[in-house]
Write a protein that binds this DNA or RNA. Structure first.
Lengths: 331, 331
DNA sequence: TTGAAAGCGCTAACAT
DNA sequence: ATGTTAGCGCTTTCAA
């Protein structure tokens, strides 16, 4: 029923090998033969079976991508970067959501390994020993993106979160404010930690003492930003500005303040993180840290192709530049 | 190097067939044997090769999903619905972006067919004859989601766009306004057409004559909403309200108006479409049509599993309910 | 309940 | 430049 390479060979009076050669663009085929084979391929409507090819060649031209949640604007952008570069290099991408659940992550890695992916792109919480072991259990290359590696063994693409948080906080502090709140993410990932460290370092540098009340946590969602905003604005000693560790939360903070009748940035300055499209889809527009999500995905995928081709890789840990954009949510 | 089913068989003193049976949970295995095999599988760290399995069984437990752009909030939500149900039924998902480019779509379908996916989920512009032919060239089931099928042959999951647009427009018209603008998408897809038809029908029903100036087009992006807003507000005879065919554009319209000093909804009412998360992440919050994106994806994937299992399917064309949510962008 | 053996459709030596 | 052939690792009859 389905036409195979063998059918084409018979019909074109050549061997399977020759058909295989023309399908794979092997130059060692006489032009006349190539033409003949190509025509019968066309006639028979032959479509190469990638599974059979994968079994024989031990290459699937498929990569696995494990992502916390594709419906998050941040990760969706990252995924787009990955997929574009994957396509460019003729790879397909199996995408799975992990919800940052470690068991699920481990299980997904295993499933992808069973499918014989040629490489894995991992995004999530931290890479633990368990992850590293799971990765090692097969010999396919792995690159992590926007994710920290506790074991410090896996190639990665990130920005410098500590520095970014430091700069954001310093920027706010530079206005002679002292009361700067910080809304971090709930999860105790390294990235979160690094942002917090950057915040602390900035305070220290300006000799501002830490006020624990000004440290809140959210889950990166808009609603948790709204909540945080409420908490901030109910304080006796309200902060002058707040550095929020994701844009979506920052929008929540802005609207929470506005809903209570406060003005941003007059009554409260708000500074975000990521520069997702949301940052310009709010009034006032959001000052934030530019984290090049698409590029992180693209660079990570590019790096993975290098490992898959066994090319030399100059830097195993890529740190992409970040920067501040000032918009209207700060003065 | 890699351990195969054969290694396990030898080590456990059974045949490959038996190992295969325990791996696949075939009941016809004596418990003792099963235990023995399971243990050596554990010891050897055997991991089944899904590619070999796929070749032998002609099933890959992988589906292909073709989506215009995963970084769009709308499609990302849809994709999440698909993936969740796919995972539930033990399928993996190959995800590719088409940018609604027909050639790319056709090519992606072909690539997925080569990979022997067990089914295809398609989202995009319209399904044309060419698409249908491409789909037919392999015998895997296809379901389209949030996409219209010109050929009317392919199972699909949608809402009733015409009715939704009719209701939205009627809602606006119900306030004794007559000047209702409509911002459609640029592409000449059936869905766009249907929304336009719904808009027209509502006007007609209220005996309001169509003013061509009030029909604008955007590309579903925030910026095109901003532009449309400018155009609307520069008119001599400004509209009272505007029905925008995507939430993201609607945010653009709201902010465009606000940036010019107009008030929403006092000076201009704005009504969206989709009810993406954006609808509540703006001030005023956006009245819109609730299109259950996650559910459309989930139902489409569920439908696909039925076809893949050759189950009976009662309805080939699923139309999910939609509804209006009134929020603060309308009075 | 278990085993033997024939493929699944292709690639990759190796030979010619 | 082309053909022959032995797998790749598994599932699936068919026998026993």
């Amino acid at each position: 029923m389905t036409v195979t390479i063998y059918d084409v060979a018979r019909e074109a009076n050549v061997s399977m090998a020759t058909v295989s050669r023309v399908v794979n663009g092997n130059p060692n085929v006489k032009p006349v033969t190539r033409k003949k084979v190509s025509r019968t391929i066309e006639e028979l409507g032959y479509r190469p079976n990638a599974v059979a090819r994968g079994l024989a060649s031990k290459k699937t031209t498929t990569v696995g991508a494990i992502i916390p949640d594709i419906s998050s604007i941040f990760f969706a952008e990252l995924a787009r970067g990955i997929e574009d570069i994957a396509t460019m290099y003729k790879y397909n991408m199996i995408l799975s959501n992990s919800d940052q659940n470690k068991d699920k992550e481990l299980q997904l890695i295993n499933a992808m390994l069973e499918k014989q992916v040629d490489g894995i792109l991992f995004m999530g919480g931290d890479i633990t020993e368990d992850h590293a072991n799971q990765f090692e259990s097969a010999s396919v290359p792995v690159v992590v993106a926007a994710t920290q590696d506790e074991t410090n063994t896996i190639p990665s693409v990130n920005i410098d979160y500590e520095a970014a948080a430091f700069e954001a906080t310093s920027y706010l502090l530079g206005k002679e404010y002292e009361k700067i709140a910080f809304i971090s993410g709930v999860d105790d990932t390294l990235i979160n930690q690094q942002k917090y460290n950057g915040y602390l370092r900035a305070l220290k540098e300006k000799n501002v003492s830490l006020n624990d009340d000004y440290i809140l946590t959210g889950d990166y969602s808009y609603d948790s930003g709204l909540d945080a905003s409420d908490q901030l604005l109910q304080m006796e000693d309200k902060p002058d500005a707040v550095f929020v560790s994701s844009d979506e939360m920052a929008l929540g903070v802005i609207h929470g303040a506005q809903d209570k009748g406060y003005q941003v940035p007059q009554d409260l300055e708000v500074f975000g993180f990521d520069n997702t499209r949301l940052a310009t889809m709010v009034r006032p527009t959001l000052s934030t840290i530019v984290q090049p999500m698409y590029d992180i995905g693209a660079v990570a995928m590019r790096l993975l192709t290098k490992y898959m081709n066994k090319e030399e890789v100059e830097e195993k840990k890529v740190v992409l530049p970040h920067r501040i954009v000032e918009r209207d949510s700060t003065k």
